[in-house]
Design a protein around this nucleic acid. Structure first.
Lengths: 355, 355
DNA sequence: ATGAAAGCGCTAACAG
DNA sequence: CTGTTAGCGCTTTCAT
């Protein structure tokens, strides 16, 4: 408000705490015009090598860095990508699932490697469409959304509006947006098939099939059951959400009620952990009485009690895939959804039959 | 490069996929000047209420959002904060410790609540000073750094350069920068005192005391030992880093070599997990033979094997504290370091004596 | 109550 | 090779 001092606060005094250095300053000091400084700093060969060096040195010694806001405005360019993590509005649960956090880290690396900045934010999982704000406002050139949640429809609509968008999640029929994700059907299949190979026959499935990824995993689950001549029993399915706060009670109730199950496929490692606790609370041991398979293979999965047998998701590669998909889209490429391989990591919660 | 089409691509055709809507567009459609649109959208009462409404409606129906780059440039203002997570250059370990990730989530919430954006990035832990780039380049109004690591000196220098900076970490003597952190001395004290109260006498300490936070925790460790009439035995201290990749081998070697220890204070929950694994590998049980206390109380600490007794850090409050400290600094307040209380969360890895 | 014009820090024609 | 000039999209005096 009250800061209209234009040119003042020069180089004389000792208290230049405030104004940020800009091109005109280094231009003056170097005795050239701002254009020359601009060119020099951008390594243009239109400027004398000696001058270029002098300007560069001066800039470095003064610790000058360019004002990207101005540069971007002028160039109509932007190197920022918005990464948006949905949160559960009801519980207002924070970003906390280790898997989502890992994906974010992976994206951060991929963006950094390519010279992009990452704007991280959260959005109400019921209003995924609000994520387009980052693009609309020019703050980001595109959006990477972590998870589809319950709003496939909103995502399709965003894609229809030509929002540069990539979503971590499963590939659904008639999908307009670009998704990148693990092979969920395969994951569900491998997990279930393994449990059946252990001789288990009452295999429960824990996860909210309203979410595309879970729906697909359930497809794999059903398919594996069919291979073994079994059909899915609705009584063995529990639509628990990913948020531990909400899931805990639900899972406890389920485990206490279903004393007949001998195996569980969980849709995240955190759910698997909760399930194991609930099973023990109801007097059963894991894996002896009930074998449990998790999903994600989070970094800590190997250090749980017992170490989790789980479906490994390709987190390390995920970041690069998501970023490449987005940049490809911006280059005008018509990138379709991408499904990445997953595999079953065997540990103690559902060990190899011999173990 | 090849996009100099100025005014064209108007309202006629059907293929207006490209150019982003701007004030001049809605001005034209509303039949007013851009100044009026600007004022209307900013709720200035200099504009006729009816006009203001009409403009607002039009903007909303067209899904217009303002270009913040331009706005910020004009207003010399910026609502973006850089959050920087150091990474280990040697191992190129990703952001992965659950504790750091939790802190980031907490900061994200705090910033969102206050209407700020968060730019997330990583920096080489040996060159923390590079984090100032976000400020220097005008991309962010300040920097929140997660952890002090080995470069207290660089942080002091950054603060001396008047960089708006807040660091998660411990309070060190002669510190020029603003830090916010848990009470590390107290944490170390509580952990050690508890183990001693269990009758343990050979208490190891695992953590790299070159890091200020660890150094302070060790102070508490030494203090608790002194209370019990003991002195720290250098042979019981292991300077293991936080990165699991590097730490694993070091911890295994230590546990195999030191068969005499009966308790361990670890400087993170992940280190505690690694330690427990290593102890078991060398034939000892936890907590019977060796009791283990972790640090952080990460979300999964309760679900490990065994559930971890650990020093609880105030993650949920941390975000707000860090953000407030930074904003205070920007308002010119001379905010000193802030130390937040911690407490010991008792679980099975070092249970209450009765258990 | 509204419009015209200037300018935030930078880049890119366009002249020299 | 270098300087002058115009303008990115917006806000804000200054005139109406």
């Amino acid at each position: 408000m009250a800061k209209s001092k234009k040119t003042a606060e020069g180089s004389e005094g000792g208290g230049a705490e405030q104004r940020r250095l800009q091109m005109v300053d280094i231009a003056r000091l170097a005795g050239v015009s701002v254009s020359t400084v601009s060119r020099a700093l951008n390594g243009s060969d239109l400027v004398n090598a000696e001058t270029r060096q002098r300007v560069a040195d001066l800039a470095r010694s003064l610790n000058y860095s360019i004002n990207f806001g101005a540069r971007n405005l002028r160039l109509q360019e932007n190197k920022t990508v918005a990464v948006v993590v949905p949160f559960d509005a009801a519980s207002r649960q924070h970003i906390s699932d280790p898997f989502f956090l890992s994906i974010v880290g992976s994206i951060a690396d991929a963006l950094t490697d390519r010279g992009y900045d990452m704007l991280l934010s959260r959005v109400d999982a019921e209003r995924l469409d609000l994520a387009s704000h980052w693009f609309d406002s020019g703050k980001a050139i595109g959006v990477i959304l972590i998870g589809q949640w319950r709003h496939h429809d909103q995502l399709n609509e965003m894609a229809a509006r030509k929002l540069p968008l990539v979503v971590w999640g499963g590939e659904m029929p008639q999908q307009l947006y670009c998704s990148v994700g693990g092979d969920n059907v395969l994951g569900g299949l491998l997990a279930t098939r393994h449990l059946l190979s252990l001789g288990r026959r009452r295999v429960a499935f824990i996860g909210d099939a309203n979410l595309p990824e879970v729906w697909l995993r359930r497809e794999g689950y059903v398919q594996a059951l069919a291979e073994a001549g079994l059909t899915a029993d609705p009584a063995l399915e529990l639509p628990a959400p990913f948020e531990p706060g909400v899931a805990t009670g639900v899972v406890q109730g389920f485990c206490a009620a279903r004393q007949d199950i001998d195996a569980v496929v969980c849709c995240s490692d955190v759910l698997a952990l909760l399930t194991i606790q609930a099973l023990r609370a109801s007097g059963r041991s894991v894996p002896q009485d009930v074998a449990v398979v998790g999903y994600d293979d989070m970094p800590l999965a190997a250090y749980c009690d017992p170490p989790l047998t789980t479906v490994h998701q390709p987190v390390a590669e995920a970041g690069a895939e998501l970023v490449e998909a987005l940049l490809g889209q911006l280059r005008g490429e018509r990138a379709g959804p991408r499904t990445m391989p997953v595999y079953l990591k065997l540990r103690q919660s559902a060990p190899q039959s011999g173990a």
